[in-house]
């Protein structure tokens, strides 16, 4: 018999009983469906204790890093404290430090959390204005290298949050944030593994952080970063990325223009097309895809068919969703981001 703590409530798990079965037996509400470890609905977060290997078998390495496991597959062998993934995501306070234009419709927003945020480069946060308006933004900064949290915000026509950030937000304004969220981040340990990063629009923001994080960690394998936009101006990080790849020979930066003539130094065509044409065999690669949802989903399939293991493909589609229309658990709207 093992003791488990679920959001502070004490539950005793019978011999051979799963965490899910024990919680349900005690009348605690936890979403679940297949009870076979397939549907991943009953994913919860361990905050203390040991999680048996079997409870993580179907999860991505990035989910495991975040302490997630499947309640239906977990027969505890030691005391365990856990909580719903949602509850682990409380709001923190931060102040705006800087808003700078990177292009006519992209700005860099820098915030400083009141207490240090533990995150990984490439994850995203939900930024909340004082009146409650909330949008998701990927993080472009790296915790070990940057004191503040930096985001790249695309201005959308009629976008409430992006319009406010562009026109009104000022140094010192207080905002709330929830996070970090997302599985698009670098994991140290396989230093020679080649990495493929494809981002469109502001989808490059998490990839810049991820690449800097990997380089800082001493990643030795090649890192190919493809940034795509319809217009040259949309490749707003061109200068910074050329400078970064100049300092790090293992970083290969490809600027891809798909909607107008490509000047010298730019590739013509879509970023994903360029990447898959350059790199037909992705067996053993780790692949990160961020930005325009159609690109992300198409590229996920193509990367898989090109030989990358599905568990090694991290996809972060910037879906434009109305929060009120997405009651699905853990669904997060990516409203202003690309």
């Amino acid at each position: 018999m093992q003791e488990i703590l679920y959001s502070g409530k004490r539950v005793l798990c019978e011999e051979g009983e799963t965490v899910l079965a024990a919680l349900l037996r005690h009348g605690l509400d936890l979403p679940y469906s297949c009870r076979k470890g397939t549907c991943l609905t009953c994913m919860v977060r361990a905050v203390d204790g040991t999680v048996p290997e079997a409870a993580r078998r179907n999860l991505k390495t990035t989910e495991i890093e975040r302490g997630l496991f499947l309640a239906c597959q977990c027969v505890p062998v030691a005391p365990l404290a856990l909580m719903p993934v949602r509850d682990a995501e409380n709001f923190g306070r931060a102040t705006i430090r800087d808003v700078t234009r990177l292009a006519s419709d992209v700005c860099r927003v820098v915030i400083r959390p009141a207490t240090a945020l533990y995150y990984r480069a490439g994850q995203f946060i939900n930024l909340r204005r004082r009146d409650g308006l909330m949008r998701s933004y990927s993080i472009a900064s790296v915790p070990r290298l940057d004191r503040d949290i930096e985001m790249h915000v695309k201005r959308l026509p009629g976008g409430e949050m992006s319009g406010w950030l562009f026109e009104q937000a000022e140094h010192g304004d207080e905002v709330g944030f929830q996070g970090p969220n997302g599985n698009c981040f670098y994991i140290p340990g396989r230093s020679d593994q080649p990495l493929l990063l494809i981002g469109t629009g502001t989808g490059v923001a998490p990839l810049v952080g991820l690449a800097r994080d990997a380089l800082h960690a001493g990643h030795a394998g090649p890192i190919h970063l493809y940034h795509g936009s319809r217009r040259v101006e949309g490749l707003y990080f061109n200068g910074a990325l050329h400078a970064l790849s100049g300092r790090h020979p293992s970083l290969h930066y490809h600027a891809c223009v798909s909607g107008e003539a490509a000047p010298t130094g730019f590739r013509s065509g879509r970023a994903d097309e360029a990447a898959f044409s350059d790199l037909p065999d992705l067996a053993g690669w780790r692949v990160y895809l961020c930005g325009y949802p159609v690109m992300v989903r198409t590229a996920q399939k193509r990367a898989y068919l090109a030989g990358a293991a599905l568990s090694e493909i991290m996809a972060d589609p910037f879906d434009l969703r109305d929060k009120r229309a997405t009651p699905r658990r853990n669904a997060v709207e990516r409203a202003d981001v690309w």
């Binding site: 009870r35 076979k36 397939t38 991943l40 599905l310």
Partner: peptide, 22 residues
């Protein structure tokens, strides 16, 4: 949802391999 699809393929293979399934 490729992750979901792959999970289904895995459940199918587990069954075809004579493994635990419901």
């Amino acid at each position: 949802d490729m992750d979901n699809q792959r999970a289904k393929q895995k459940a199918f293979l587990t069954m075809a391999f004579g493994g635990p399934n419901t």
